[in-house]
């Protein structure tokens, strides 16, 4: 934090570090710290308190103790479905996103011409507004008039085979994959870019050495690439799992949580409880349950990483 004395004295007087300057530094921090306190820290604590109340926003809150939690965990059948849906999204979205992201990154790392163009194309969905994307996908999936369905109907008419396009957004069994597809389309570009950066940091001499030892392309990927990017994989896995836990907009715009609650996620349920059913306390309780889930899963992942993550590339930590 502090520079050494010798370099201090070589600086002009006004640039030297003085302990009494600290107060000025804190003054500069004040706006962002105040913002954090008012918009993050205080609401977080307030929501914990709120989860012990029944509150409709309009009348004074009524203290109910742990009732919001006990009802949620014991008798709320919708909440069970919501948990199942959320875990479905986590176990599908996270591995697929990592796999596709790595695959694309490896493909783009082969010294292709026009790398920037491909990178741009794959990254474009990341910066696309989710609402616009979800609305387009809604059309894309429509059984009667969508592009995807039109192709299948066409195929059916041409071949005379009784092929029917799935009723993506009407059928609970297909609505979840539809949300997964939209999420993959949206986020894989981000995974790819991070992996691409990691791949470019893998020293070429490791590959050369492996080649000299007669390693095949797959062996080089397995034994050099994969371990070398494992810190990146770990990072992506953690943030994507948290992202999947918080899945909301995709389902909110494209399926409205339906059909038959098939795409209702935990965060969607928080929204529903608080703003549709006017039960702020119950919504806050769901939010805290979500926090505990994310906390536990991240903790487990951090523990497990010792078994498979190799920190060798930079030589540090």
């Amino acid at each position: 934090m502090t520079a050494s004395t010798s370099s201090q004295s070589s600086l002009p007087r006004w640039r030297r570090y003085r302990p009494d300057q600290q107060s000025e530094a804190y003054l500069f921090l004040l706006p962002s710290f105040a913002g954090f306190l008012i918009f993050v820290a205080i609401p977080v604590v307030a929501s914990l308190a709120l989860s012990l109340f029944e509150w409709s926003l309009l009348s004074p809150p009524e203290f109910v103790g742990f009732k919001n939690y006990t009802q949620l965990l014991s008798s709320d059948l919708v909440f069970r479905k919501v948990l199942f849906n959320t875990f479905y999204f986590i176990v599908t979205i996270v591995p697929l996103q990592l796999a596709f992201g790595l695959l694309l990154a490896v493909a783009l790392n082969q010294g292709l011409r026009g790398l920037e163009v491909y990178r741009l194309i794959y990254f474009m969905p990341v910066v696309t507004t989710i609402v616009a994307a979800a609305l387009v996908f809604q059309w894309f999936f429509n059984r009667d008039f969508g592009i995807l369905a039109a192709a299948i109907w066409e195929l059916s008419a041409e071949t005379g085979l009784p092929i029917r396009p799935p009723d993506w957004l009407n059928d609970p069994d297909w609505a979840k994959p539809a949300v997964v597809i939209l999420t993959l389309w949206k986020n894989t570009g981000f995974t790819m870019v991070i992996y691409l950066a990691a791949l470019q940091g893998v020293p070429a001499e490791l590959y050369d050495a492996a080649k000299v030892d007669g390693a095949s392309a797959w062996q080089r990927f397995r034994s050099v690439t994969f371990p070398m990017v494992s810190p990146t994989t770990f990072f992506l896995m953690v943030i994507q799992m948290i992202g999947a836990f918080q899945l909301f907009s995709e389902a909110f715009v494209m399926t409205q949580g339906g059909p038959a609650n098939a795409t209702l996620t935990i965060v969607y349920y928080i929204y529903q409880m608080a703003f549709e059913f006017q039960r702020m306390g119950r919504g806050a309780a769901v939010a805290w349950v979500l926090f505990i889930f994310i906390f536990i899963f991240t903790l487990v992942q951090t523990r497990l990483q010792r078994r498979w993550v190799h920190y060798e590339a930079g030589g540090e930590s």
Binding site: G258, P259, A260, N261, Q272, Q278
Partner: peptide, 23 residues
């Protein structure tokens, strides 16, 4: 009554969807 929105949103509408889809 106030709880109607939850009865509709959590039980009746999803249940109706299930019937109409044929689940």
């Amino acid at each position: 009554f106030v709880e109607w929105s939850q009865i509709g949103g959590s039980f009746i509408n999803p249940g109706r969807d299930q019937i109409l889809i044929g689940e």
